[in-house]
Design a binder for these strands. Structure first.
Length: 161
DNA sequence: GCCAACGTTGGC
DNA sequence: GCCAACGTTGGC
């Protein structure tokens, strides 16, 4: 993955029982619509801050071994999450007005599966001490990642062992 | 299954 | 605007 100065970085949580990095890689163009975000802060990151080409750490959550499982990139601008209007979806939101959709998402293209960098390993890295993911009480499913954190993870940790 | 931590809702 | 109640997240 080549980097430029304006590139931003994100960590995005997905439950592998729903969409794992393998699932994403198996999709056409390895691309998935990031459906189901129902938190305003996380939505705002997708709607207001993400740019096509931003780097994404693909994180597996709510599973036996939580951790970073792959690399991906943002590959669309924000658009309304269709599941909010789908009465059959667990993400249905009947308070969302189709004329002014409440929930937005971006498309994410999986680039590669990595070795699993598990949560305890991330916690053990002094260089990652300030990662939002690791902050006590953090529950956000999308968090910004600094360029230094991105480099540490993609250049050092992924190739370790 | 437990539970700490957090976000949202809604009565006032 | 306050805040108690409730629902959700997510690691363990």
């Amino acid at each position: 993955m080549s980097m430029n100065m304006t590139m931003q970085f994100w960590l995005m949580k997905s439950e592998p029982a729903e969409v794992s990095i393998d699932d994403a890689l198996a999709e056409p163009d390895a691309t998935v619509a990031w459906t189901g975000v129902r938190n305003y802060q996380a939505r705002n990151f997708m709607r207001d801050a993400m740019r096509i080409g931003d780097g994404v750490l693909f994180y597996h959550s709510s599973c036996a071994e939580p951790g970073i499982a792959g690399l991906a990139e943002v590959c669309s601008t924000a658009y309304p999450d269709p599941t909010q209007f789908d009465a059959a979806s667990p993400y249905h939101d009947d308070k969302s007005d189709p004329a002014a959709p409440r929930w937005m998402l971006v498309d994410v293209r999986a680039m590669q599966k990595t070795r699993l960098i598990a949560l305890p390993e991330l916690r053990a890295e002094p260089a990652l001490a300030d990662m939002l993911l690791l902050k006590k009480g953090n529950r956000l499913s999308i968090t910004p990642v600094s360029a230094a954190e991105w480099r540490h993870i993609t250049e050092k940790l992924i190739n370790k062992k």
